[in-house]
Every structure is written in structure tokens, then in C-alpha cells.
Design a protein around this nucleic acid. Structure first.
Lengths: 346, 346
DNA sequence: TTGAAAGCGCTAACAT
DNA sequence: ATGTTAGCGCTTTCAA
């Protein structure tokens, strides 16, 4: 230790082993093991003595040794097949991850973060996931077009956040989702209810189920009301994409009086674009977003939006996987409720 | 497998062990181990035979067994003592984490995500970090006021993103940072150079070194130019906080003609607030931000900002920790360069 | 250059 | 209720 470097080669106090605890407590290793694992087959006094020894030595079981015999790693992969900015930039994911993390902190599992390329996870990630390094995986992304991930469920318990894309999905996939189509209907219907007639939509990429479903919900609703479904632009679930899509929409359909936008983040961009063109919200154009994220309350005018319980979805994802890992039953599909949150934009 | 649940109790093809590889290759386990670990003490033909066997069986070493004997977990904690929204909402962190992840994907280490409460990590996190479950830790946060984390470096190799707060810091801490004070001088000086006289600042919480240093850099520069350092408001590194601080500033100092804002995210809020009050950027008020994140190019007018190499900082954090874990020397402090990126706002 | 054997720290039969 | 024993899959002396 010379002021410039510090050696960790020989960690200060070597961690005590179960054997040492046994010695101090004057019992066998098996007994200590039983105490640690909460076996009912231990007498009260032994439990006390062992407990004292554990506390005294500050004993913590060795995960590796435990994993080796238990044939379980006690860790779960959080797979993020998404560009880091896209992922971090969307509050929806923040909530999902928070929910996952919360649920997991009550368990013995830890979360391994695997940031991967959207279209093809690295060789290292594949080997990692398939090499028995995790007991299960959680896949969070809007984007589920990858074959590897789609088939991952065949080798490992996997729970997806959002329905995996149809034709790639393994029929046995577990996923948590909201009824995006129904949510879109709620949002679009509200625009109709407040008297709008020329209702456009800005949707997401066509390879994402959430996009497709929200678009379908919008279309269904406008058509059912005898309105046109011609006013559509495709965004990419980013704010900048929302701006571009809105500008395109305004240019092509100057008559529009409302836009149902497939995410709050994009809606935030739409607001910017409308301001740019001197259009007022909601007077000239009414807006409904999707997510009820912090972007909904960011701007001057609050965003009316279709709320989805993102954090709860994360919690349920983790919970579902934990059930599976415990050998319990879990529903393949868990649909959560959306509801409309009305603010000033529509 | 009844359509509703699926059993993973008995994973399909049991993973091959080193022993089986040895059998197939007709050598001893020790030899296979040598091949796997790239020992030079293996003949060319044995190497080939073993390689073939490994490929044939699709063998992947068992991490737990390896960890057990190597007394290393081969995993690193990514500790995030920050509210999830704060963390995910700031592109700075996205870059840092991306950099960390990139560096780690070239290594054998995996990243364990530990989302913890800003002021006091949970008991579980503490036990986890101190219980020998990771070989080292990376702490990313603007906020380093916690004693536990500050002292973590005593028990474990730890690398901080950003200088830990002075009085709490262990003198042996490793950290990666930029010279925030110098960056703030660059930004503020630019405002002076373009002719501004009434230069305000919006800084961050006073318990964050980055805030304190950026504020000091601003003050130093305005005072050196014979200008006033009276125009100051404190934000919280969020966009909403930027809005509030800007409104306060405008009300108290209606004469201001420039603001140096301690982060792009807050600067984005400032832009919103100025628009609200009908003030034009840069005509009425010039703005300089800090980070050069995507928020700098989000609005109508591009933000002039002090760039810091966030992704590179993450990469270096990981690299430093990896060095330490390899028993190599690493600099305790790595300072990276900031530079001014001039756009339209100033 | 290769193999035999010991053991990392823990759990799980099997005895008692 | 508790102890004894046998490994989990790997690396690593030590011999050959």
C-alpha cells in the first residue's frame, strides 16, 4: 500500500466458513447448515448457540459452494436488447426495472444486467444465458424481434415484459402485458368524446407488438365512429421521433384536430412540434398519450394519457419468474389494466 | 406440461461436466482444465482433441465450481444509490452504464445491479456487498453522501463515478471524474466572451461534489471578470427542478442575461421556463449547460454545453476495477477532459 | 506433458 | 435431534 495502489490480494479477515461456526458452536457442520436453512429439526438451545456463533463470527454463507451443490445459481438475468439511450431514456423502463428490483430484494436472487444489441445478442451473452449461469431470465424491451431471445424460453425459464412478437414467439412463453389495443381504444374514444373528428395517430415501429396493438385499437375506434383512419404516422418511441412524425402528420393532414400518440415520450415531442407550428393544445389539436410517465406532466399543459402500471408490471414479471423457479404454477399471460388519466391536453 | 404451466424442474439436457469432456477426449480432467484455462503445458494434438470434445459436447464450465476453488465470484456490483427515475432519467448515467457494460463484455466478469435507496442501502445490499458475493463494486451516482458506501472501499475494491464527498471519503478511494470546476470555468467564460454581464447559475444540491465544484467554477470566473456572483439558484438535477429554479431566478433577478446551468437536463427545464416567460434564447438570455447529453439537441435551439465523456468514464471505471482485481496498479484518481460544445444557445 | 489425488464450502442422504 | 459421509465441478499441487 504505497499511496498509489492498494492491494486486495489478501482480503483482510478471511471469511469464516460453516466449519468454523460449527467448531465455535460445538456442533456438526450439518447442524449449522440446518440452522442456516431454517430446518425445523433443530432444538431450541442448539439454535441459540449456533445463532450466537454465526453472529460472533459474522458468518455469511458462500454462494458459490451453495450453488454448486444446489445446482442453482440464485441469479436472474435482466436482458435488455435495446440501445442504452432508448432504454434509459424511457421512464417506462425505469418503472419496470424498479418493480423488478423491488420484488427481487425480498428474495435470495440477484439480478445480472445484460445490455445487448437489439437485433443480435453478443456471443458472450448467448453463452452466458445458455451456459447455466443464471436460473432464469427477464427480458424487457419494446423490441422483441430477435430469434435468439424468442427461443430462449426453450432452454431457460423466461418472462417477457410485453408480448413477444407473434410469429417468433415460442408458444410456451410467459409474459406480462397490458391490453394495448383496449388501452388505445380508451384513449381514442376519449378524443371522440370530447368532440374531435379528424383523429390522427402516431404509432411505433411495426415490429413491436405494442405498436401494432395500439394502432389497431385506434383504427378500430375511429372506424367504429365513422371517422377516417387515414391520418397515421410512424414514430420510434423516442421524443425526437415524435417531433418528426408530428411534423409529417401536420404537413400531410393540416385538418387534423387530435392525435392519439403511442407513448408519452413521443407525445412530448409532438407537443414541441405543435408549438413550433404555432398550434395550441388542446384548442387546435387535442393530444392523448400512453404510459402516464413523468413526461405526461413535464410540459406546460398536462398530458391526457392511457396509464399502464409499469412498476407493477415489473414486480409481476419478477414474481412470475420466481414462481417458476420455485417449481410453482404461474399464468403464462398476465394482463394488467390500463386506465385513462385526464389532464389538459384532451 | 399442461398448457398452463411448464416444468423446468429437470432441465432438458443436463449440462456436460469437465469430466465428461475428459472421457470423450480420452484424457484426464486436469488436462481438460489446462486446455480451458489456456495453459501452455499442453501438446498440440491433445489441445485439438480436447477442443473437439468441448465443441461436440457444447461444454461450458460451471461458474460456481470455478468460483469455489478460485475464491473469486467473477462478478461486480453496480451500485446505484439513486432514485430509479433520477437515475434512468439522466442520459449521463445511461452513458456511464453503457461504457461499463461495454468494457465488461470483454471480460469474464458479470454485472450485478443493485438499486438502493440514496441515503441508506438496504440491509440486504449491505450483506450482499460485504458477504463476499462480488469481487468488487462500481458506484454510480451524483449523490455520495452515504457513510456505508463511503466506507465500502475499506472492505472491497470499489471505484466511484465522480469524486466521493470530501469528509466522508476514505482516502484510499478510487474514482473517475472530470474537473468540474474547470468545466464550469470553460462554460462561464464562454458567456463572458459573448458579451454577457449578468451571469446567473443554476447549480445542484450542495451535498454533491459535482454541484459544489461547478458552482465554484462559475463563481471564480464571474468574480475574476469583475461581475457579480449574486445570481444563483439551486436545482436538483432534474428537468422539473430546472424549471422551478429558472422561474425563481428570473423573478429575483429580472436583469440577468445569461445562465450557466449545471446539467443539460436542468437546462432543458430552463429553456421551457424561459419560453413560458416569453424570453428568447439566446437573444434575451444565453444558456450554457453541462454534459452534452441528448437534451442538448432536443429543443428548438441547440444547447451550448460543457461536454464530459460519460461513456468513456464508465469504461474507465470498469477498467480501473478490473485492474485492481487483477492485482495490478491503477491510479486512484482519473480525471477526464471536458470541452465546450458551442451550439445556438450561447 | 500428463495424470492422480486432494480439497474449495456447502448440502443431503443415511445413520444413530 | 444430531452426526457422518459423500459428493457438487472445478483447479492445483505433486508425481511420474
Amino acid at each position: 500500500m504505497n499511496g498509489q495502489v492498494r492491494s486486495f490480494g489478501a482480503p483482510l479477515p478471511a471469511r469464516p466458513t460453516l466449519e468454523e461456526v460449527a467448531k465455535v458452536a460445538g456442533v456438526s457442520r450439518a447442524t449449522v447448515s440446518r440452522v442456516i436453512n431454517g430446518s425445523p429439526r433443530v432444538s431450541a438451545d442448539v439454535l441459540e448457540v449456533v445463532g450466537a456463533a454465526i453472529a460472533e463470527l459474522n458468518y455469511v454463507p458462500n454462494r458459490a459452494a451453495r450453488s454448486l451443490v444446489a445446482r442453482a445459481t440464485m441469479s436472474i438475468a435482466l436482458v435488455v436488447p435495446e440501445d442504452a439511450h432508448r432504454f434509459f431514456g424511457d421512464p417506462y423502463f425505469a418503472d419496470v426495472v424498479q418493480g423488478i428490483s423491488n420484488r427481487l430484494s425480498d428474495s435470495d436472487y440477484v439480478l445480472n444486467l445484460q445490455l445487448t444489441h437489439p437485433d443480435s445478442p453478443s456471443e458472450k451473452t448467448r453463452r452466458y444465458l445458455l451456459g447455466g449461469n443464471v436460473d432464469g431470465a427477464l427480458v424487457v424491451s419494446h423490441h422483441s424481434g430477435d430469434h435468439f431471445l424468442a427461443s430462449l424460453g426453450r432452454s431457460l425459464p423466461v418472462v417477457f415484459g410485453g408480448r413477444p412478437l407473434g410469429d417468433l414467439a415460442h408458444p410456451g412463453d410467459y409474459y406480462i402485458d397490458v391490453d394495448n389495443q383496449r388501452g388505445a381504444r380508451q384513449g381514442t374514444q376519449h378524443l371522440i368524446d370530447v368532440g374531435r373528428k379528424a383523429i390522427a395517430t402516431i404509432t411505433g415501429p411495426s415490429d413491436m407488438p405494442a405498436s401494432v396493438d395500439r394502432e389497431a385499437g385506434w383504427r378500430e375506434t375511429v372506424l367504429a365512429a365513422g371517422l377516417s383512419d387515414a391520418r397515421l404516422a410512424r414514430g420510434d418511441f423516442t421524443e425526437a421521433g415524435g417531433i418528426r412524425a408530428a411534423l409529417r402528420l401536420i404537413d400531410e393532414h393540416p385538418d387534423l384536430d387530435a392525435i392519439f400518440v403511442a407513448s408519452d415520450l413521443m407525445a412530448s415531442g409532438v407537443m414541441l412540434a405543435l408549438a413550433e407550428r404555432g398550434l395550441r393544445v388542446p384548442t387546435d389539436v387535442a393530444i392523448v398519450g400512453f404510459d402516464n410517465s413523468r413526461y405526461a406532466t413535464r410540459g406546460r399543459v398536462g398530458l391526457t394519457t392511457v396509464a399502464q402500471p409499469a412498476q407493477e408490471m415489473g414486480r409481476v414479471m419478477a414474481d412470475t419468474l420466481l414462481r417458476l423457479l420455485a417449481g410453482e404454477t404461474a399464468p403464462r399471460v398476465t394482463m394488467m389494466e390500463t386506465h385513462l388519466v385526464i389532464r389538459e391536453s384532451a
